[in-house]
Nucleic acid binder design. Structure first.
Lengths: 122, 122
DNA sequence: AGAGAAATGATAATCGACTCTCAATAGTCG
DNA sequence: CGACTATTGAGAGTCGATTATCATTTCTCT
């Protein structure tokens, strides 16, 4: 593989994914061989520093990364394949949960369950 | 400290907390000295096996534990002190986020921001 | 093409979280 | 009290994730 801008390769793979990917998921998608794990980590770190990428941490799954240019959205975590999927839309009524004196700056919603594919395979 | 049922000590501390605690938080609340970290981990593990405790994993915060006998609730994670607080109530409209073919079995909502105390200290 | 800068891959090193080991201690029960 | 079992604390060991090292390769610019 040409060594020019492997970072672009990493970003492209993230952009094509249907949800945030962990460093390892990303690495295996890139073929494992051909791109070093260290390079994946480097690209991710730089992406976050650049503001191009965003890291999200979901329950039980460690840190994953996704392009920062996406609209506000949340995630679905399949408890079988452990893959995270993007969801669209948001929910109502978050403000009412905030206790007096607390200031909310953001929120995260994670749905757990079985994804399409795993549900059919079962 | 008497060695009888340190596990109870651990459970009590969790019960008195205003939110889920990590093993380390719990350990430092118990005085650090006096109870070994290993004992804390052991008590937590047994608690989860018993069904007495539940482990929750919030964004950016690792694994925390809380008594399982609580009502359905969510959490507020202070980005300054990094402490997790219990919230009461839930939100509407979660089902509408689930894609076709996916089966939701649970969900987690985490609010981020500044807690009472940190907001005043700032 | 040639020099210097930047990026890369393989692997060693690090880090934090958690578990295991083991001798010592406390609890149980006759 | 005395034998036997369960629990404990301290520290070593393990495990996975991430980062650092470094020789090599690729880029950029002339």
């Amino acid at each position: 593989m040409s060594r020019a801008k492997q970072q672009l390769t990493v970003f492209r793979a993230l952009g094509e994914a249907d949800g945030p990917l962990s460093a390892r998921e990303l690495w295996s998608r890139l073929g494992g061989a051909g791109v070093g794990l260290a390079t994946v980590y480097r690209a991710l770190r730089r992406g976050v520093e650049d503001g191009t990428l965003e890291s999200v941490e979901l329950l039980g799954g460690g840190v994953r990364y996704e392009p920062k240019d996406r609209e506000h959205h949340h995630h679905f975590l399949c408890s079988i394949c452990n893959h995270a999927f993007d969801l669209f839309g948001c929910v109502e009524g978050l403000e009412s949960l905030v206790p007096d004196g607390f200031q909310m700056t953001g929120h995260e919603v994670v749905l757990r369950g079985t994804c399409d594919e795993c549900a059919n395979a079962a």
